[in-house]
Amino acid sequence: MRAEPSGPRVVVLRCKACRTELPAASHDVAFRCPQCGRAWEIETGGLIERPSYFVAPPRAVRQPILYLPYWSFTIEAEVKAAFLADGDELGARDKAARITRAWVAAYSIHRPTYVGEWGIAYTRIGPKWEVRSGHGPRAPGATISGVDGQAIVGHYVLGEIDRKADVGDLDLDLEVGDPELWAIPCYDFGDKIRCPWTRAELAASCLDDLSEIRRALERHGA
């Protein structure tokens, strides 16, 4: 048993703006301040601020609402000269022009592409949400960093365009914006959660940190 001479960098988990303690589970890397709604991400230099938004819940709420974190990015995708049949080319251009924003789930899901990642569905359908900023609901922290989210979401967009035309044949110019931390509501049924817009469901067992998320939210609610 020995102590290392040089320790790691230590960051106090407090909102830099309002000094409120940030709710952080053991694997969280980004947080939404429960008081002022600002988002902070841990990087090697300390806490850096990210744009923070939340989605208003559906008007007719029948079940308890649970907010989950997502990384959201502005997308600029442009298909230039292509050597495809006209139909494919138009389809790919249309698809690329339609995607202006993409999302990736920032909470821990066990085998996300197998059980269903709602970020892909949101990127595909581009829901018309009522987006707000500032003080809002309490939301758990993100376990995926913004940089990782950026890499994943770029491939989500490529995959969507690839469904219309082979991206290998396209001269594609894709720009993914800076990460924004969003809190998006879902219905909490206890043993499963349900998306109010797509009606997709996820078993609670697929969410690695769901029990920790609920505990943290209940603690703050009390």
Partner: peptide
């Protein structure tokens, strides 16, 4: 702190501390 710890409370002031590495 022990190896592998990421988030730990300060025993004196109670602040939540996060180790970046």
């Amino acid at each position: 702190v022990r190896r592998g710890t990421r988030i730990t409370p300060c025993e004196r002031c109670g602040a939540r501390l996060c180790l970046t590495e």
